[in-house]
């Protein structure tokens, strides 16, 4: 209910923020705070220093950079969801953002924050995996790019170092013949709340045949993961319902499915197939 005491800083520039992190190994970055503050209130996590990047200018834009979109660290879920650019070029991410949290959470929380938080049942994590996005991490030591496939390490753990800030998310723009989609089962049924299981799919079809596909799952294991076997199975097919069904059978291959309050391993393994099939179907239409 009440966080423990901590030091708070709200730097006005990215450099100041990076310096604050470099100087305080125990510091934690906060953007919207939608995940961090509840954990602090429950005293499950009590950082000594909170570096609030919310006052830094210039981090809240979605930019079209030719072959990719750049989503800044402070772009809110609602902005990602409603962005015509994201809807057109990265439909899976727009949909995932629209199903994140609830309206007030989407108004305050950020896409990059949710990705860095790396909740095992988050929505946008699966979308950035399927879309083959790249995370841009900055520290006083410099800038590095991390592929989404390398970004999610474990539950609530991503590849960012403690002194790094995820400053932007680079999402390849869907070109001709490419489509993506995200679909999920929420904890109360329907699509609301955290995902019991969700799947994001990105597919490219050339001359009537699937020549690339990436599918990712969320909610079924300890983190969002690529379902690599699905893409492999689908490539070379005609992307028909039959081909999708056959490829979806591989959904949980190589995925460490875990039981929780919302589903057994058997159920989640099954849901992985169902939602991969639904996501692929949507991505291909």
């Amino acid at each position: 209910m009440y966080p423990r005491q901590f030091e708070y800083s709200a730097p006005a520039s990215l450099d100041e923020a990076l310096a604050a992190l470099a100087n305080n190994p125990a510091a934690k970055v906060m953007s919207g705070g939608m995940s961090l503050i509840p954990m602090m209130k429950l005293r499950l996590f009590s950082p000594a220093v909170v570096v609030d990047i919310g006052k830094i200018g210039g981090l809240d834009s979605i930019e079209d950079r030719g072959d990719h979109l750049a989503i800044g660290a402070l772009v809110r879920h609602v902005a990602t969801a409603n962005s015509p650019l994201v809807q057109q070029y990265a439909a899976a991410l727009a949909k995932a953002a629209s199903l994140t949290g609830d309206p007030q959470v989407r108004n305050q929380g950020t896409t990059c924050g949710a990705i860095a938080h790396a909740d095992l049942a988050a929505d946008q994590t699966a979308a950035v995996l399927a879309l083959g996005a790249t995370m841009v991490a900055k520290s006083t030591g410099g800038t590095r790019e991390i592929a989404a496939a390398d970004f999610f390490v474990d539950t609530l753990t991503c590849a960012l170092q403690p002194d790094e800030i995820l400053v932007e998310l680079l999402v390849p723009k869907a070109g001709a013949g490419e489509g993506s989609a995200y679909t999920k089962l929420g904890r109360r049924g329907g699509e609301s709340d955290y995902a019991v299981a969700g799947a994001a799919a990105w597919v490219r079809k050339t001359n009537g045949s699937v020549d690339a596909a990436r599918v990712a799952l969320t909610g079924v294991g300890s983190k969002a993961v690529l379902a690599a076997a699905v893409g492999d199975a689908l490539v070379g097919s005609d992307g028909s319902a039959t081909a999708i069904e056959a490829a979806s059978a591989h959904a949980a291959e190589g995925v460490n499915v875990l039981e929780d309050l919302h589903g057994s391993v058997e159920y989640k393994t099954h849901l992985a197939k169902v939602y991969v099939q639904r996501a692929l179907t949507a991505a291909l239409t």
Binding site: L42, R187, R188, G189, G190, S192, D193, Y194, L261
Partner: peptide, 27 residues
């Protein structure tokens, strides 16, 4: 939706609104 779920040691696993979902308007 609703269920107070205890583990074998008597810990309430559904002790917050996150894990004890009451209906929302959308449901």
């Amino acid at each position: 939706f609703e269920e107070a779920i205890y583990d074998a040691d008597g810990n309430l696993l559904s002790g917050s609104m996150v894990d004890y979902p009451i209906p929302t308007a959308g449901d």
